[in-house]
């Protein structure tokens, strides 16, 4: 919003800095805490006389423990494979669905759109037991495909909806013109519409990536054995030893499992938002 007038600086404080500081404190404080704990020796952690907000001694022991006593690198790799795999698969399906629902007029389109949305209402706590049977029947247990194929169930609905809205924002004339010029519809879609829709695809992709990165229950049940754990499952099973939490290493894993992703996001966060803008306001 535009600032006018002589008390511009004062306005700036009220409208920007004070709320920004509030949000930083609220949203970032837990990360500050995670960082502090991940660098604090266990003895200091249990010493309730010390100020818990400060670091009196610094140790990187929790980080080295994470790398030497758990298979953290492997867990990161697993999570990447599963997340990227399920994101790509979901995007592929969602682009097609979004395009069909956003562009084509056909019988049953409205119904199918609602049906896909309804899929969102089915709670995972209901699904995971019957799903484990499906996973076993298809011989996917403890394989990457178990998650690459099951994550799309909760990724496709949102991504399709977002992309449907996005495709609607792209003028029809462009591809019609291409088709009159002799391109098939698939060609027109691939060469004209898709490049224009990249911000929307990127938004949907980030969304899928984040949810896949976070998932716990399916990863625990369908792929939780040996070296095949994802970061959340591996970290929680390796670092909660019965009645003892390895706080430092757990928090170290939390930092390592989120900050790099956030830094990566910072490079295309504006793309992400603009993609969401078009998709969401026309949805």
């Amino acid at each position: 919003m535009a600032m006018v007038g002589s008390n511009r600086m004062q306005n700036r404080w009220i409208q920007l800095y004070i709320p920004l500081i509030f949000f930083l404190l609220f949203l970032i404080f837990p990360f500050y805490w995670m960082l502090i704990v991940s660098l604090k020796p266990d003895a200091d952690l249990l010493n309730t006389k010390l100020n818990p907000f400060l670091l009196y001694h610094v140790t990187i022991g929790h980080y080295t423990y994470l790398f030497t006593n758990t298979n953290f690198v492997r867990y990161v790799w697993n999570t990447m494979v599963v997340t990227v795999g399920s994101t790509v698969l979901s995007l592929f399906c969602s682009i097609l669905i979004g395009y069909a629902l956003g562009r084509f007029r056909f019988r049953g389109g409205g119904f199918l759109g609602s049906a896909i949305f309804l899929a969102y209402l089915v709670p995972p706590t209901l699904l995971f037991i019957p799903l484990s049977q499906v996973v076993t029947k298809l011989d996917l247990y403890n394989k990457y495909w178990a998650l690459i194929l099951t994550y799309p169930t909760f990724l496709i609905p949102f991504a399709s909806w977002l992309l449907m809205g996005y495709f609607r924002t792209i003028a029809r004339d462009l591809e019609d013109a291409a088709m009159v010029d002799g391109a098939s519809r698939l060609q027109a879609m691939r060469t004209i519409v898709l490049p224009l829709a990249m911000p929307g695809v990127l938004s949907a992709g980030i969304f899928c990536f984040t949810l896949g990165w976070n998932e716990f229950l399916y990863a625990l049940v369908f792929m939780g054995s040996g070296n095949m754990k994802t970061v959340p499952v591996g970290v929680v099973t390796d670092l909660i030893r019965a009645d003892v939490y390895f706080w430092g290493s757990l928090m170290a894993a939390g930092i390592l499992g989120s900050v790099p992703v956030a830094i990566a996001y910072s490079f295309f966060v504006d793309n992400y938002i603009s993609g969401l803008t078009a998709g969401a306001t026309k949805g």
């Binding site: 920004l20 949000f23 930083l24 949203l27 970032i28 837990p30 990360f31 805490w33 995670m34 704990v37 984040t210 990165w213 976070n214 716990f216 970061v231 959340p232 499952v233 970290v235 929680v236 939490y245 757990l250 928090m251 894993a253 939390g254 499992g257 989120s258 900050v259 992703v261 956030a262 830094i263 996001y265 910072s266 966060v269 504006d270 938002i273």
Partner: peptide, 22 residues
Amino acid sequence: RFFRAGLLLPWIVPTAISTLAF
């Protein structure tokens, strides 16, 4: 841009771990 990405952090960090921080 960095604030925008930074303030997304609670959404990015795996819930299983951020909940342990809480």
